Amino acid sequence: MKKRIAFATLATTVAIAGSATARDQIRVVGSSTVFPYSQAVAEEFGAQMGGAAPIVESTGTGGGMKIFCGGVGEGHADMTGASRAMKPSEYELCTENGVTDITELLVGYDGLTIAHSRSAPDFALTEAQIYLALAAQVPVDGEWADNPYRKWSEIDPSLPDTEILAYGPPPTSGTRDAFVELAMHDGCKALPYVKDGGFDGDWIDENCSRMRQDGPFVEAGENDNLIVQRLEADANAVGIFGYSFLFENQDKLKAVPVNGVEPNEDTIADFSYDIARPIFVYVKNAHRGVIPNLNEFVEEYTSSASMGAGGYLQERGLTVLPAAKLKEVQDAAIGAMNMSAPES
């Protein structure tokens, strides 16, 4: 059960406060999807406080969790953004390293977006077509085999007669984890070979999770702005990233509808867009009251002016929480509510 805490333990506080060089800037790491939101809050907070803004680094969800869970003290990050919930293995890593008091905060909702240049011809994809284009192995003549498809039109004649080229996130990214779970697994399950084959969830996890490595799918790192640049340079390429990057580049890019639905604030909020997901930030409570202004930064991050309807994060593409849910998040943030261990 979650519990509220008023302050960190004395031993932890002394350990941090006793550092030879006290850190006076908040450090936030994590997801490239959450990065634009954390950066916007950091800039607003710096302007309000009149001092140095918090440092925000785009390390990917997995990389951010490793940094965040590395330990307690001024040498370790205070917060991490995540485009998926913390995994049990990451919680265990935190626990092993003394990071035992963490507040999990739901920031809002995001849609995993497949986008391409505005100069490209329009087309739409089903999750099954996405899987057939990007998976390492697919059904071929009744057998499970290495993916032979090189062109979209080889999957379906109605699709463009161009080479498949998709720039996407690396394995350390929460966006990659979410894309595999929400798009690839569902696309795999929709294939007649799998749907009619009686395969269970373990088989899906083992056989439908690998992205192809023979060229059509390219791991583009944690900087989604580089994917945007590549899509501008090649009208035949598509990119996979969070909705905020499409939102901020609507003059250059357009969405590829998935299962007949385009990502936007409404379709992400009601999850009619099939590859929508929640996004999070995690706060190291032992650093509250020790790292200057961390409590105030957390309050600004979760404020109605930031995360609420009409707030400045909505202006950056965030699909915001309903008012009642936002109030729950704000209470958890202010009360430093300690999260429960994630379920396997």
Rank of each mutant, 00 (worst) to 15 (best):
Pro342Thr: 01
Arg23Pro: 00
Ser117Ile: 08
Arg27Lys: 09
Ala22Arg: 12
Ser38Pro: 05
Leu134Trp: 13
Met65Val: 12
Met86Ser: 05
Gly187Asp: 08
Thr61Val: 08
Thr162Lys: 15
Gly311Ala: 02
Ala190Asp: 14
Pro216Thr: 04
Asp266Met: 09
Phe271Val: 13
Glu127Lys: 15
Ser344Ala: 15
Phe241Val: 01
Pro192Asn: 03
Ser32His: 03
Glu143Ile: 01
Ile268Val: 13
Gly50Met: 07
Gln48Ala: 09
Ala332Pro: 01
Asn207His: 15
Pro192Thr: 02
Val194Cys: 09
Tyr193Ala: 01
Ala178Gly: 13
His287Ala: 08
Val28Pro: 03
Glu219Met: 14
Gly187Ala: 09
Gly73Gln: 07
Gly18Glu: 13
Ser32Met: 04
Ser272Glu: 06
Pro54Ser: 00
Leu106Phe: 02
Asn285Phe: 04
Met211Ala: 10
Ala255Cys: 07
Lys66Ile: 13
Glu299Thr: 00
Val99Thr: 06
Ala237Lys: 06
Arg288Gln: 06
Asn264Thr: 04
Val28Ser: 02
Arg4Gln: 13
Ile26Gln: 06
Lys284Glu: 04
Gly174Pro: 05
His185Thr: 00
Phe35Val: 01
Asn259Met: 05
Gln330Glu: 00
Ala85Asn: 15
Leu231Gln: 01
Gln213Leu: 14
Asp186Ile: 03
Gly51Asp: 09
Arg118Thr: 15
Asp110Ser: 12
Thr9Lys: 14
Asp78Cys: 03
Pro192Asp: 10
Ile334Phe: 07
Ser173Glu: 04
Asp202Pro: 10
Ser89Ala: 14
Gln25Met: 04
Ile26Asp: 06
Ser173Phe: 02
Phe241Tyr: 06
Met337Glu: 12
Gln129Leu: 05
Phe247Ala: 05
Ala145Arg: 11
Leu231Tyr: 04
Gly71Val: 09
Thr126Arg: 13
Ser173Asn: 07
Thr113Phe: 03
Thr12Val: 13
Gln250Phe: 12
Lys284Met: 04
Glu219Pro: 14
Asn97Pro: 11
Tyr131His: 03
Val258Glu: 06
Arg27Ile: 00
Gly30Gln: 02
Lys2Ser: 15
Leu112Ser: 09
Thr319Lys: 04
Ala53Cys: 03
Leu318Ala: 06
Tyr301Ile: 00
Gln213His: 13
Asp214Ala: 01
Pro216Phe: 07
Asp196Thr: 03
Gln39Ser: 14
Glu265Arg: 11
Leu159Pro: 10
Pro139Glu: 06
Asn147His: 11
Asn236Trp: 11
Lys189His: 09
Gly142Ile: 07
Phe68Ser: 03
Leu112Asn: 11
Leu134Ile: 11
Ala124Ser: 15
Asp156Ala: 06
Tyr273Trp: 08
Asp101Arg: 09
Val281Lys: 10
Ser209Val: 04
Ser340Thr: 12
Lys284Pro: 04
Val107Tyr: 02
Ala6Lys: 10
Gly335Leu: 05
Leu226Trp: 10
Gly142Arg: 10
Leu253Lys: 02
Ala178His: 07
Glu143Val: 05
Gly75His: 08
Gly64Phe: 02
Asp224Leu: 12
Thr103Gln: 01
Asn225Tyr: 14
Val107His: 02
Ala237Gln: 06
Ala133Tyr: 12
Ser173Ile: 00
Gly63Tyr: 01
Val180Asn: 07
Asn338Arg: 13
Ala286Arg: 10
Thr80Trp: 12
Asn97Met: 12
Glu181Lys: 15
Ala190Thr: 08
